[in-house]
Design a protein around this nucleic acid. Structure first.
Lengths: 154, 154
DNA sequence: AACGGAATGTTATATTATAACATAACCATG
DNA sequence: CATGGTTATGTTATAATATAACATTCCGTT
């Protein structure tokens, strides 16, 4: 389902990048936030808030929902995590510095949510918004279907 | 916030169109479904399932959540209603026959969710999907921001 | 009328998310 | 290094959203 060679490296890299970004922006990359982000990357696919909660519970005593949601809010606001609304789930952003230009191809079979960038789409969205005198704050584009691997297409 | 001249006409028209479509497709446009669709159109903006429930409660004794959700599922599956995932709310589809090519401009100020069609976007989405060997089942495109009216732009 | 399938009713509960207030950690400044 | 303000987290409770599972009713067909 995923394309990183060594998964632990991939998580470590994401955490490292996050730390750098937070440093640069004077944001606190606290322990809770780090652990939540780590779990999001560990799942390497959309993960639900309460699944994060369950996994944290095994490590830290008595983490409660607000703690997880706050961390997810922080990570989402700062471009480190995406919320996938159609799944009520969260996924690590693979290029936080270009965080606003992404969309997702979500396979309903294997559950992968592939993050993509596409300037044609970004352009078309920008144009149609300005034509409607609409000022964009946030764009959610979630494409659900079946991926090539699951369909056996090559 | 909306552009129909006579709101009751606009609701009546939507219901009439829905009835025709159901007839044509041999679907049952039952009393519950009609009433739910009517409330969706009456709100003339995204409405939440439990708000529909509350309003139905005043008319029919003891409607329960599953009834509303089933009706919404039916209406959504058959292109008469859109679910807006980023709001957990539902809105009437203004062109059920071209239901799959829509997206929304959602004003976070006035709450309007303007349904739009744009071939450039549809094309760009189709192309990027096929390039990724991905077979589309459903596309959610929700653009959140501020509309021209609310920004005072003309 | 009797049957079969679709729709709805009903009870209960699962899942997702936040409000509100208390405490703790962090950090700038005197 | 004490103090006070700000930010983050802990804690309790509950709100908001959604579905499972089974019973009953409705509706068209035979």
């Amino acid at each position: 389902m995923h394309n990183c060679t060594t998964h632990s490296d991939c998580i470590a890299e994401a955490l490292h990048r996050a730390e750098e970004i937070c440093d640069k922006r004077d944001l606190r990359f606290t322990d809770v936030r780090r652990k939540v982000l780590e779990l999001v990357w560990q799942s390497h696919g959309p993960i639900k808030a309460y699944d994060i909660l369950d996994q944290l519970d095994q490590r830290i005593a008595a983490i409660k929902p607000p703690t997880v949601y706050r961390a997810l809010d922080f990570l989402t606001e700062n471009g480190l995590v995406h919320k996938i609304n159609s799944l009520n789930a969260f996924v690590g952003c693979s290029h936080p510095l270009r965080h606003r230009e992404c969309y997702f191809l979500i396979c309903s079979d294997c559950g992968e949510a592939k993050e993509c960038c596409n300037l044609d789409i970004v352009d078309a969205v920008a144009k149609t918004s300005s034509r409607n005198r609409f000022e964009i704050k946030h764009v959610t584009l979630e494409i659900t279907g079946e991926c090539g691997d699951c369909r056996g297409v090559h």
